[in-house]
Write a protein that binds this DNA or RNA. Structure first.
Length: 478
RNA sequence: GGCGCUAUCGUCUAACGGUUAGGACAGAGCCCUCUCAAGGCUUAAAUACGGGUUCGAUUCCCGUUAGCGCUACCA
């Protein structure tokens, strides 16, 4: 039975890297008919927050990702402690009564890295039991063999054979002096108890895995299969962090900016994994059908962003592609909440007219607010009257075109084809090029030179608004 | 410092000893066109460096360099 888990620690919002880890786990489970488990790794009581947990759920909900079972580590304390007890009883761990050091910054990374507290390992079982019973605080450490050097091994589905000497592994903690398990212990105990078959997680755990293998074996279990994922890093090469890189590391930022859930998932999948052919855009079903460890890369992937452009160009492109290939009705439905959020009132009927006009012009849902502002504004934003002057024309030509439009529009059928025929005829009557006729009208109606196609725009705006705006433009010219 | 992992266009990646080193995004140019967008075509752009192994290395091995990770009673 294939069982995988996503185990976030609720110490921040849902990170894009975490989201990708969830997706890869999910894809693997769904492809092979396995079970997807969400396990909240909240053993760090100091840093956990409920808000963080909410943001994780919020992010997963937005991405429409589901799971079959859910657990919370803090509710499984007894299990973890028992697990530690088993290892301790076997003599494979020891109590360390050294008082907690007040984190001295220069100690850990210096030349003299400690591997264990030699004296603490030598305390006899009787003494250790007595001191513990007397209430003296201690941490339980794994007792890495020191008399003989062994090679700890495991095979990673992505990184291949991994070997590390026990001489390079320190006596890591299993239980804190508070009795609360450390991540390493809780994680392994739960993986055993939840019968996890495959651990798919970030490469930052690759070296930790040797410790985990030691824990699994000490408790008498075979370790599950491991598959480590390359990390997502920032353009500066550093691991993505909120402090350094800001909100771009949070999944909700993408949601709020107007990314479509699937486009975002698609983007994340392309970071560190490849279908090995030239496919870029893939549906969820396709992804489920072809995802495999063979396609996972071993080098870190840069997610590109800058202050000027906070989102990776590929993500933007994928989102734009998704937007322009989705059914208009679906896009309208996705756009409606964006308008509500911005406090804009727009009937479903009007939105249905506007949507096809902007569909291939927006990259993010929120772009409707800038690309289509003139559809919603009661009053057009101020623009320079010089904008009204067409190419190879002058103010007089602009005026002539607008006046002609004002005269013709009331009797023209307000449909795309009707407007095109009417306006082209009007241009001909004036003896100017069609473009020179259209340009002043576009600016008069949209307030700028770049806008969606004119006829559809006029139609969506309605006759009254068009006439009013043209009238104002004429006044501006005079 | 120790240990581990990684190294192909700016970015994401393909090429599991033999290719003119492919694709995508971003960039540039042209076409289409009522502006913009979309689309079509064209273009520029990479095997970190040094040694091996081999008839032949992007590919295998070693070293250098660089980046990242771990080295907590964080996860």
């Amino acid at each position: 039975m294939l069982r995988v888990r996503f185990a976030p620690s609720p110490t921040g919002y849902l990170h894009v890297g975490s989201a990708r880890t969830f997706i890869f786990n999910w894809l693997y489970a769904r492809r092979h008919g396995g079970t997807m488990i969400l396990r909240i790794d909240d053993t760090d009581v100091e840093r956990n927050t409920e808000q963080s947990l909410d943001s994780i759920f919020e992010g997963l909900k937005w991405l429409d990702l589901d799971w079959d079972e859910q657990y919370r580590q803090s509710e499984r304390l007894a299990l973890h402690q028992q697990f530690a007890e088993t290892i301790l009883a076997k003599g494979l761990a020891y109590r360390d009564f050294t008082p907690a050091v007040v984190a001295v910054e220069d100690a850990p990374h210096g030349a003299s890295t400690w591997l264990f507290n030699a004296d603490q390992r030598e305390i006899s079982k009787e003494d250790s039991d007595r001191r513990a019973a007397a209430g003296e605080p201690f941490v339980v450490r794994y007792k890495v063999p020191r008399d003989v050097v062994e090679q700890v091994k495991f095979t990673d589905s992505v990184y291949g054979e991994q070997v590390k000497s026990t001489a390079d592994i320190e006596d890591f903690a299993l239980l804190r002096s508070t009795g609360i398990p450390t991540y390493h212990l809780a994680s392994c105990a739960d993986d055993v108890d939840l019968r996890i078959s495959h651990i798919i997680r970030g490469q930052d755990h690759l070296t930790n895995t040797f410790k985990h293998v030691l824990i699994f074996k000490a408790a008498g279990y075979e370790p599950p299969q491991f598959a480590h994922l390359p990390l997502l890093i920032a353009p500066d090469g550093a691991k993505l962090s909120k402090r350094k890189h800001g909100p771009v590391v949070s999944v909700t930022t993408y949601r709020d900016a107007g990314f479509l859930p699937h486009a975002f998932i698609n983007f994340l999948c392309l970071l560190g994994w490849s279908p090995k052919d030239d496919r870029e855009r893939m549906t969820r079903e396709e992804l489920k059908a072809i995802f495999s460890f063979e396609g996972i890369n071993r080098s870190n992937a840069v997610i590109n962003f800058s202050e000027a452009e906070p989102f990776d160009a590929k993500a933007l492109w994928l989102n734009a592609e998704t937007i322009r290939t989705m059914p208009v009705a679906d896009l309208s439905a996705a756009l409606a909440p964006v308008l509500v959020e911005a406090g804009i009132e727009c009937s479903a009927g009007k939105l249905a007219h506007i949507t096809p006009l902007i569909q291939e012009r927006i990259r993010l849902l929120k772009d409707i607010l800038t690309v289509g502002d003139f559809f919603f504004a009661k009053e057009l934003a101020p623009y320079d009257s010089a904008e009204l002057i067409p190419k190879k024309g002058d103010a007089a030509m602009a005026l002539k075109a607008l006046e002609k439009a004002l005269e013709a529009l009331p009797s023209i059928e307000f449909s795309h084809d009707g407007l095109e025929a009417g306006l082209r005829a009007a241009a001909e009557q004036l003896g100017i090029k069609a473009g020179q006729m259209f340009e002043p009208i576009r600016v008069a109606v949209c307030g700028r030179k770049t806008a969606p196609p004119l006829f559809g725009t006029l139609e969506a705006l309605g006759r009254d608004v068009c006439l009013e705006r043209i009238d104002k433009a004429i006044a501006k010219l005079k």
